[in-house]
């Protein structure tokens, strides 16, 4: 699968852009947290698209964001 680029995103309507980012993020998140993947992806999609693109290119920053999201979710669900 070719990497998602800013210009590919810009060519799509806003709602579609989140969908495209979600489709890329979900498998990566699912590999780390299968049971929470949908919720974590939903949370991360609230982040700016430009930042989400950077996270897709940087596994390290993606992983730290995922752990942040898991911590927030766990507090939220208490």
């Amino acid at each position: 699968q070719e990497p998602l680029t800013a210009s590919m995103l810009a060519a799509a309507p806003p709602q579609e852009q989140k969908q495209m980012l979600g489709e890329r993020l979900y498998p990566l998140i699912h590999a780390m947290h299968p049971s929470l993947a949908g919720k974590i992806t939903g949370m991360l999609l609230e982040i700016d698209n430009s930042e989400l693109l950077l996270m897709l290119e940087s596994p390290e920053s993606l992983h730290s964001k995922i752990e942040e999201a898991v911590a927030v979710l766990q507090v939220h669900q208490m």
Binding site: P14, K18, L25, M43, H76
Partner: peptide
């Protein structure tokens, strides 16, 4: 009590209903 519907859940292949970029 918390808002159980947050965050919206993403499902692959299902059109995203969350907020678009502002």
């Amino acid at each position: 009590s918390s808002n159980a519907s947050w965050p919206p859940e993403f499902q692959p292949g299902v059109p995203w209903k969350g907020i678009p970029n502002i």
